[in-house]
Design a protein around this nucleic acid. Structure first.
Lengths: 208, 208
DNA sequence: TGATTTTTGTACTATTTCGTATGAAATAAC
DNA sequence: GTTATTTCATACGAAATAGTACAAAAATCA
């Protein structure tokens, strides 16, 4: 039974059409938070960045905090999606890590903003338990995902059988964190790229 | 020629005496920034925390930004002083690193606030060039200081002759950065301590 | 064409925030 | 004791900020 009304082709809504695209608006809002931080961003800033008017912002995303939490989720999902594409051809561990950090640097160095989560959520984490939970989940998720990759690499003999995937993964996440901080400090890409190369060497052990 | 009026024994000022101690006031101000972030901290918060009244705050430290910059310097100097004491008995590299990270965890886990610089200055870095410069200097300083320790250890044969002190130092700083983030995410000390142990193992290489 | 629904745009209020003006209080110098 | 100096304490004003009320606008439905 083929139903013709697809889910992607949303049935046209009834009233006046929206003048904004919710996802791009969310992206623009994230841009502002990314640069100014949560408390450093005013609703006027968000209005200006999204092109939406104030009541529309509230109707679409709730208050400032709701909106911020939604940008965090969007960022996480986006980063996750990009990362998965890097695994499409099932590359060796070192190749994957090289791609992974290169992608991170591309993101972090655009405007020297570093990582969105580290740059903004880390500050809010002390005063907002939801943000803290999100940050914790993000770190744990990075650890777990990378641990999987190390585990697979160990099975393939790309790293020593004695290696502990979970612990190496934490160091790989640590590398991501220091890149986030250093990018925000304005350090040049050349330095960060060198750091990545060393980190891969040290974490994965001597090439075999 | 012995001058009796020592510099520590400040000559009594002329007018009404201060009701506050500048250094403890600075420490209290840092506490508030540490928890709420720069933009999340109001002057009323600072007044409440320091016990000073508003005009005294301005007279003593300048405006909010000046005050914040002064807390950053105080934090850096304090951290530096503590670190130097850890070197007093000229310990082996691994012993020093163990002490170093333990001290960091003690600081970061008090209230799960993480590192003051990473937690607050990283956010401000994008909008305040002085803060960004401070952050960059802090990272570079950590790298350089640790590189010295790795270099000394190499001379002593504690790590392989082939090791690159400068690069290993960056990984040691990376470990500090991830601790800062993870502490702020509320992760338990046990996990962070395990991470430290692994990091020391991996960075310093197998014990010889 | 007219009713209904949804979004837009402007304007508004209550609150918070920063920085300062002003006079009282406490000390040293004379 | 009087004067000069420095800090304290209250209070104030201008600007910014978050969130909302309300009517006009633009679409669908009947």
């Amino acid at each position: 039974m083929v139903q013709k009304t697809s889910k992607t082709q949303e049935r046209r809504r009834r009233g006046r059409p929206r003048a904004y695209n919710p996802d791009t608006a969310l992206a623009r809002a994230a841009d502002v938070f990314w640069r100014n931080g949560y408390d450093g961003t005013s609703l006027d800033d968000l209005v200006a960045a999204t092109g939406m008017n104030r009541p529309s912002l509230y109707a679409a995303f709730g208050d400032k905090r709701d909106l911020y939490l939604k940008t965090l989720v969007r960022y996480r999902d986006s980063a996750r999606a990009v990362t998965l594409t890097l695994l499409a051809d099932d590359p060796p561990l070192r190749v994957f890590l090289d791609r992974f950090y290169r992608a991170a640097l591309d993101l972090y160095l655009a405007g020297a903003r570093g990582c969105y989560t580290i740059g903004t959520a880390a500050t809010q984490a002390t005063v907002d338990s939801k943000v803290r939970a999100f940050l914790a989940e993000g770190v744990r998720n990075s650890d777990a995902f990378l641990a999987e990759q190390f585990s697979k690499a160990r099975d393939r003999g790309e790293i020593p059988r004695s290696a502990d995937p979970a612990m190496l993964a934490q160091l790989a996440t640590a590398t991501l964190h220091t890149l986030a901080v250093r990018a925000r400090a304005g350090l040049p890409r050349r330095e960060l790229a060198a750091l990545v190369a060393t980190a891969i060497e040290v974490i994965c052990g001597p090439r075999r």
